[in-house]
Nucleic acid binder design. Sequence first.
DNA 1: GACATCTTGGATCGATCGTTCCATGACCGG
DNA 2: CCGGTCATGGAACGATCGATCCAAGATGTC
Lengths: 195, 195
Amino acid sequence: MRKLQPMAGRKQFDVDEALRRAMHVFWRWGYSEASVDRLTDGTGLNRSSLYGTFGDKSALFQKSLERYAQTYHPLYSEALCAPHASPSAVIAAYLQVTLNRIADPTVPDGCLLTMSATQLPALDTKAQTLVHTMIDTLRTMLTQALLTAGATSQEAADLALCTLATNKSLAVLSRAGFPPKDLTTVAAAAARIPH
Amino acid sequence: MRKLQPMAGRKQFDVDEALRRAMHVFWRWGYSEASVDRLTDGTGLNRSSLYGTFGDKSALFQKSLERYAQTYHPLYSEALCAPHASPSAVIAAYLQVTLNRIADPTVPDGCLLTMSATQLPALDTKAQTLVHTMIDTLRTMLTQALLTAGATSQEAADLALCTLATNKSLAVLSRAGFPPKDLTTVAAAAARIPH
DNA sequence: GACATCTTGGATCGATCGTTCCATGACCGG
DNA sequence: CCGGTCATGGAACGATCGATCCAAGATGTC
């Protein structure tokens, strides 16, 4: 059977772009509802290419999580490493990264990491560990930045936790359909916690 | 739940208790991962009794959501309707209900409503509407209580939103495995937002 | 030009999904 | 005491799940 478009000796698609699209499918649907059919539709690849390139569904999910970290953690890192006059400014800068991501129309609602955290029982051991590691990384980054901004050790620990919590809540509210204005209100209030 | 004598002419199980257990299965696993097998295991009923009593999976899920509301909304209502000296006290009382529920070892981690909100795309229209309605109900209850406690209209709206957000974040953190101490810290910080 | 290598599309696998059906047997009104 | 009603257990349904396999075709090397 003949094809209008040529076949291949080498890959006929952009692996990185395909991974980005697969990540979006997991992001939008969550691990369980991200069927292989939805992944093939979302990436444009067929089953053979998907399995041949990324391995099974769980491996693709882990690669998507890593890709998520590689994409967004640098943004948080940049925001946190900039000089801040106070812990409040650190929190505001961090949450602004989240708000910007949520406002990005080319990306699904919510947050892949938060989605995955709520569905931990559905993930295999490696994916669970990866989720925990990613959360810990963000928590550490926040704590360090808060210390640098002049917070005491206790304040930094507490505020890092609360900022992480606010981040999660923004993801949930976003997925629940709350308007951007409400998300901004929540983020602004979180930055007013310390005195 | 079941008798040694196998059959029956009338129901051989407590319908309300079965619904409570089904609710726990949805609560722990989320809608997608709550397979009928897990529901039969969790309730002790077999497929026939489950379908004959509650209808299909979506109907059972909706009944579980309603059961959740009937169980916990009164607790929030009680906490909110008690006299409070300040908006902060209202927030603390509300979040304490959530902390108590999360601390309850007989119940899954997190919050069925939050779980469902993050998985809205996987739910059918009626379930989606039900989730939105339940969230709106809680939001309205909070706003009213905050107004009663002396908040201005704007304050009440903002604080109700932020308290709802904190509630969601507690659910996510709980499912992510954060210890109760961390949840208490987050709730306490949320009650310190207003001045 | 021929062969080895690799990707692609599509068929197909067994398992599990939600759902339905049916034989069985206990109950209740006659 | 008998027949209608209904819950139960379990088999079985078609659909979809994740995953694998294979023929077809394009490429690079010889």
